Amino acid sequence: MPSPSQVLLCYCTCPTAESAAHLAETLVGEALAACVNRVSGIQSTYRWKGEVTTDTEQLLLIKTTADRFEALKERLLALHPYELPELIAVPVERGHTAYLEWVRAAGGS
């Protein structure tokens, strides 16, 4: 179990630039994430309801902390247009110390 101040990098895909921007602005605006990068034009191939599908999506790279993750997840699931949104959190083991401290402080941790 990560410590509450553990910095996490979360991955989430969105169907459109508009939905990605709305999620990014909401998560940062509500101090659930310190920063969200939007990467456009990724190609995702996946199996959904028995069919192999390929779509163009937007990738969100969300920087947050372990103590904000559950609230971030609840908010993201409430706003996301997909029936089953991707949300994967990976602990950040190393990084620029000042940047990691900024991520921790951005949500009031």
Rank of each mutant, 00 (worst) to 15 (best):
S44F: 05
Q58N: 11
S40L: 08
E30W: 03
G50M: 03
R38G: 00
S19C: 08
L27F: 07
G29W: 13
E57Y: 03
V39Y: 14
R47P: 00
T45L: 13
T64H: 04
T53M: 14
A66K: 15
A20Q: 07
A20N: 06
I62E: 02
L61C: 14
T53A: 13
R38Y: 02
H22W: 07
Y46R: 10
L32V: 08
T56R: 15
T64P: 06
H22F: 05
K49H: 08
I62K: 07
A21E: 15
L61T: 10
E51N: 00
H22G: 00
S44I: 01
E30A: 01
L23H: 10
L61I: 14
R38H: 04
S19W: 08
E70P: 00
L60N: 09
N37M: 08
N37R: 04
D67K: 15
A33I: 06
L32T: 11
T53C: 14
V28R: 09
T53H: 15
K49L: 07
A21Y: 01
L27M: 07
E25D: 15
A24E: 04
R38E: 07
Q58S: 05
A31Q: 07
Q58M: 08
T26N: 02
A31V: 11
Q43V: 11
H22L: 12
G29K: 05
A31H: 15
A71N: 11
A34E: 11
E51W: 01
K49N: 09
S40C: 11
E25N: 15
N37F: 10
G50T: 12
Q43F: 06
K49A: 15
V36N: 05
S19Y: 11
E25K: 15
L32Y: 13
T65E: 07
T56M: 14
A66T: 14
G41T: 01
A24D: 03
W48K: 00
G41N: 00
V28Y: 08
H22Q: 13
L60F: 12
Q43H: 14
V36C: 06
I42S: 02
T64Y: 03
T64S: 10
L59R: 00
V28G: 08
D55F: 04
E70R: 09
T26I: 05
T56Y: 12
L60R: 02
A24K: 03
E51Y: 01
E57Q: 06
Y46D: 02
T26C: 05
S19K: 14
I42C: 03
E25G: 09
T45V: 13
K49P: 01
G50L: 09
K63Y: 09
V52Q: 10
A20V: 04
V36Y: 10
T65R: 10
Q43L: 11
E70Y: 12
R38K: 12
